[in-house]
């Protein structure tokens, strides 16, 4: 297995292939700043929850680093992400809509994000990836365990490359992405 490109995002830091991007915002405002300065033209971004925004901008930076983006449909690239908190932020947000029986307004727009794998779907939709998408929850950000799980994913004979790695978010201001593009 070979890692071709890597993107790291924390609330105050963005690093692409070892090089820090010069950005001024922090927390969720940082994600919007990345979107505006490096991506744009995808208004669906503003509907996403923080985990999806994080995964979206991180994967965009990763794929921009790869270059030659043509958005042609493909089945040979998988998206397999890992984290500790699953969809905790969205879960907490949805719970607040049903907590009070006097003020009970369950929201389908909030409920849809209460699954961690929605972000893998957002990345697949953006890039027309028909390949494998998966989300795995582990308690520690253990790169060895992540790599073990990614290396076996190449047993699917159609899978030639994977967007994989860590994508965790506990609330709007606390998140971490450490994702990479790898080949068999």
């Amino acid at each position: 297995m070979m890692i071709l490109h890597r993107v790291y995002i924390s609330p105050d830091k963005v690093i692409v292939n070892g090089k820090a991007l010069e950005l001024t915002e922090k927390g969720s405002a940082l994600l919007t700043q990345i979107y505006r300065s490096h991506i744009g033209n995808y208004p669906k971004f503003f509907k996403m929850d923080t985990l999806c925004k994080l995964g979206f901008v991180a994967s965009e930076l990763l794929l921009n680093a790869e270059g030659n983006r043509n958005f042609e449909p493909r089945e040979d690239r998988a998206v397999i992400l890992f984290n500790r908190s699953a969809s905790l932020q969205a879960d907490t947000n949805y719970q607040s809509t049903i907590q009070d029986s006097e003020n009970f307004f369950p929201s389908p727009a909030a409920f849809v994000y209460t699954l961690p794998n929605i972000v893998t779907g957002e990345i697949a939709i953006r890039n027309k990836y028909f390949g494998e998408t998966s989300f795995i929850v582990i308690e520690e950000n253990d790169e060895k365990l992540i790599e073990q799980n990614l290396s076996v994913a190449f047993q699917d004979t159609d899978t030639k490359s994977i967007i994989g790695g860590w994508l965790d978010c506990t609330d709007e201001e606390n998140f971490e992405a450490n994702i990479f593009l790898m080949e068999k």
């Binding site: 089945e75 929605i118 779907g121 939709i125 890039n127 028909f130 390949g131 494998e132 998408t133």
Partner: peptide
């Protein structure tokens, strides 16, 4: 096998 629709969430 696991495959995505790449269509809608």
């Amino acid at each position: 096998a696991i495959r995505n629709d790449a269509n809608h969430i």
